[in-house]
Design a protein around this nucleic acid. Structure first.
Lengths: 345, 345
DNA sequence: CTGTTAGCGCTTTCAC
DNA sequence: GTGAAAGCGCTAACAG
């Protein structure tokens, strides 16, 4: 079993010094063409690859970015990860992926683990527990270690760093507005994420619109934890005669649709449905659901670009933190009625 | 902006040598308790963390494993990744995640990228293009670099390395058997992955069973590329009076169900459906689909354990490659009829 | 008990 | 043109 080739070995075999070999491989003009050729040939022969560890240690750049996600089975985060990966790889960067599993302690551990010079920067979305308990020291300490962070989606205002978010409030307003415009009068707002920053914002946005209309009423259905979401929603829909459901997260939307189907409700004739989701439902549901598309992959790409910009910045010129907002799209399909109200001119 | 603390700086500040500091932090019994206490206090104060790069360079262990996946938006791979991550983190390992996007060249690039001492080992599933074109040198060369690989799901028999697979043939046989036993006579086998190793195996398994029965006929519907899967399946179901669909992959299964719903076919009365999928459909469909569960997370965990075992092995005692087989489960739900045939005693 | 030294593999400055 | 030497941060064998 042959060991991995190093500059040293190439040098010995060629009767050259290590530095000459190193320079040759970089086409340093100090070195004669003949030598360069010799070196390259042998390097090629042995398939020499510079030891990434040594290069990083020397240069203090790892070309790696750390990504800490609350979950990966949630399609939204999977898409964000995909966006990050694409963008990172385009720039020759690798990504270290960690999944906090919505758990504060795991998140802390991962931040610790990665802040040992393992990565050049971090992209992360806070775990549910972190947001609920509001423990943020582990993030704030990254500043002291001089490692830049970009927070996305599940952010916290008090942390001074770059952020990329969705305008959740506006998005849910738009969705609610559509329901109202298409004639819905009695709307259920269903959420299983009321304890997350984004959950609150979506709530606020939806309510704001509903409250603008005297003839529109809404019901909030907040479901916590891993309660039996299905039966809660079923019970709710049975005892409340709503004509629309706005699902503020994937679970809420998905379950609502299935329960409606089970109850024999016709969509959209009897029940209009709009869901915050990211393509999963859209792809696998019938009738096709109207959705608030969060452009998760774009979000991932933007977060990555942000981080690259930050990394490229002269650290002394530490500009103020930037918050970028990704616009959502309301994608109307078969699960909602067309707009009925005549807008005033 | 304070720079990251190193042993050197601690040593200077404490008027000790670097090695004494290093040993103190390791509770080396050679060092006096008093010194250990002093060192630890200062280290704590500065939140000293050993530079992972330097440690790795020294020890030639990165505590990182590379994971190369064909896709991440496919729920199956997301689940596998989750399984890998959980298992790895349990052992204090980080994972470098790469997504080949079904593209041979990206896969090659990633293998190159990671085999520069960036990882201790690799877990991967071959990209579609790699399987089709059968170019495998990049994987085989890993052996020369002495970096262990565990291949899962999309494997290749000619590569000498550990493998973790699902018994796809048996799984599809089981599924087909159930359809037959529940009285289906005219069964569509729908696949969009006939060009993958797993696709072929599933095909073979299903056909084998169908062909055992004189009164059962089957139709193969192989859909290639990103053709308009929906219309092809719709057309097929319209012109062929089948009473069951066996979807050999997620797309095939999902689209079949939706089209059936669209066509007004009652499931399972008029059409039984079983799909190879990994919980996605199950979670979001109504009626609940019968599925072949591939236990993706288990698969990921097992692959990781395999890799750890390999890493722990004395390299000179390079045992033969091991192939582990993960059993599937046929999860029967509302989309299939109960078994009708009376089995002979 | 503590310190010196060498070395992991590489880059880079400075001599020759 | 080429090479020697220092150093990135750490560990470990060996001296003292």
């Amino acid at each position: 079993m042959r060991k991995k080739v190093t500059l040293k070995q190439l040098a010995k075999e060629l009767n050259l010094s290590i530095s000459t070999v190193s320079k040759s491989l970089k086409n340093d003009r100090e070195i004669s063409q003949k030598t360069i050729a010799r070196v390259k040939e042998l390097a090629e022969f042995y398939k020499y690859k510079p030891n990434a560890l040594a290069v990083s240690l020397k240069s203090s750049r790892t070309n790696t970015i750390g990504v800490i996600l609350p979950e990966i089975l949630n399609h939204f985060f999977a898409k964000v990860l995909n966006g990050i990966e694409q963008e990172a790889s385009k720039h020759g960067y690798k990504i270290l992926t960690c999944i906090s599993n919505e758990c504060y302690q795991k998140e802390v551990d991962y931040v610790e683990m990665l802040s040992n010079n393992s990565v050049d920067g971090l992209i992360m979305s806070l775990s549910q527990e972190t947001q609920i308990t509001n423990q943020l020291d582990h993030i704030k300490e990254l500043k002291r270690d001089n490692i830049p962070v970009v927070l996305f989606d599940r952010i916290n205002e008090t942390i001074d760093c770059d952020k990329v978010i969705i305008d959740d409030k506006k998005a849910s307003s738009k969705a609610m507005q559509h329901l109202v415009d298409s004639g819905c009068k009695n709307i259920a707002i269903v959420t299983t994420i009321s304890n997350l920053s984004v959950g609150e914002l979506r709530c606020t946005g939806a309510k704001k619109i509903a409250e603008m209309y005297d003839d529109v009423s809404y019901h909030m259905l907040m479901i916590n934890e891993v309660a039996d979401v299905e039966s809660i929603i079923e019970e709710f829909l049975t005892s409340n005669a709503v004509d629309a459901v706005l699902g503020l997260d994937e679970t809420a939307a998905a379950v609502s649709v299935n329960i409606a189907a089970k109850m024999g409700l016709k969509i959209p004739e009897q029940l209009s449905v709009i869901g915050f989701t990211d393509g999963l439902l859209a792809k696998y549901s019938y009738p096709k659901l109207s959705i608030v598309s969060q452009h998760a992959e774009t979000l991932g790409a933007i977060a990555t670009q942000r981080l690259f910009k930050r990394l490229a910045m002269n650290p002394s010129a530490k500009n103020k933190a930037v918050t970028e907002i990704v616009e959502t799209t309301l994608l109307l399909r078969a699960s909602t009625l067309p707009v009925r109200t005549t807008k005033q001119l």
